[in-house]
Amino acid sequence: MTDTTSAPAEETDELTRLEQEGEIAADYLEGLLDIADLDGDIDMDVEGDRASVSIVSEGTSRDLQKLVGRDGEVMEALQELTRLAVHRETGERSRLMLDVSGFRARKREKLTTLGAETAQQVKETGEPVKLQPMTPFERKVVHDAVAAAGLRSESEGEEPQRRVVVLP
């Protein structure tokens, strides 16, 4: 006989762990905002199997743009620093996602559209399409969109030139 009570307990433990990651990340980011003298609120959530933390501003988000940087480069670095802060506290590797002023959410929308449109192009032509090099986050979003459109994709190349190839 199998023990079915452990599955919900394991899910609860995982949720608690991800919420703890979000709390640690929020504390770290609040300290950073104070040091940088930037106004922003921290929103925490759990999306799938990872903690998600967003820095949002009620007024103009021009100041927070400094935390995004050119094409999200500063935000990616800040995400890695935040993951390290979580790791320091928990001893476990974090897959936490950081968004600043909705930048990542907007990028996800654009990449989902790109994946769907590229999948449609591949369906029409029957020819594979290689996309521009992307970050791991960007590639994941495109792979998911291509799969949702019923096609296959794979990544090829070495970082930082790794790219998605959509296959017929």
Rank of each mutant, 00 (worst) to 15 (best):
L78P: 07
Q79A: 08
Q79M: 02
E80V: 02
E80M: 05
E80R: 08
E80I: 03
E80F: 08
E80Q: 10
E80Y: 13
E80L: 05
L81W: 02
L81D: 00
T82Q: 03
T82M: 08
T82I: 06
T82V: 09
R83A: 06
R83P: 06
L84M: 14
A85T: 05
H87V: 03
H87R: 14
R88K: 14
R88E: 12
E89N: 13
E89T: 14
E89I: 02
T90W: 12
G91L: 11
G91R: 01
G91H: 01
E92N: 12
E92H: 15
E92S: 13
R93S: 07
R93I: 06
S94Y: 01
S94H: 00
S94N: 04
S94V: 06
R95V: 01
R95T: 08
R95K: 07
L96Q: 03
L96W: 10
L96Y: 07
L96F: 10
M97T: 13
L98W: 07
D99M: 10
D99L: 07
D99P: 05
D99A: 12
V100Q: 11
V100T: 06
S101D: 15
S101H: 01
F103D: 10
F103G: 07
F103Q: 03
A105N: 11
A105V: 01
A105S: 15
R106N: 13
K107C: 01
K107H: 13
R108L: 08
R108C: 00
E109V: 13
E109S: 13
K110I: 01
K110Y: 06
L111F: 09
L111M: 10
L111T: 09
T112K: 06
T113Q: 09
T113G: 04
G115H: 08
A116H: 03
E117K: 15
T118F: 14
T118C: 12
A119L: 10
Q120A: 15
Q120S: 12
Q121A: 15
Q121W: 00
V122H: 06
K123Q: 14
E124N: 13
E124S: 15
T125L: 05
T125V: 07
T125K: 08
G126N: 00
E127K: 13
E127R: 15
E127V: 09
E127C: 05
E127F: 01
P128A: 05
P128M: 09
V129Q: 14
V129T: 12
K130R: 15
K130D: 12
L131H: 11
L131G: 10
Q132G: 04
Q132F: 08
Q132P: 01
P133G: 03
P133S: 05
M134A: 11
M134W: 07
M134R: 05
T135R: 15
P136E: 04
P136V: 03
P136G: 08
P136Q: 01
F137H: 02
R139T: 02
R139N: 09
K140T: 14
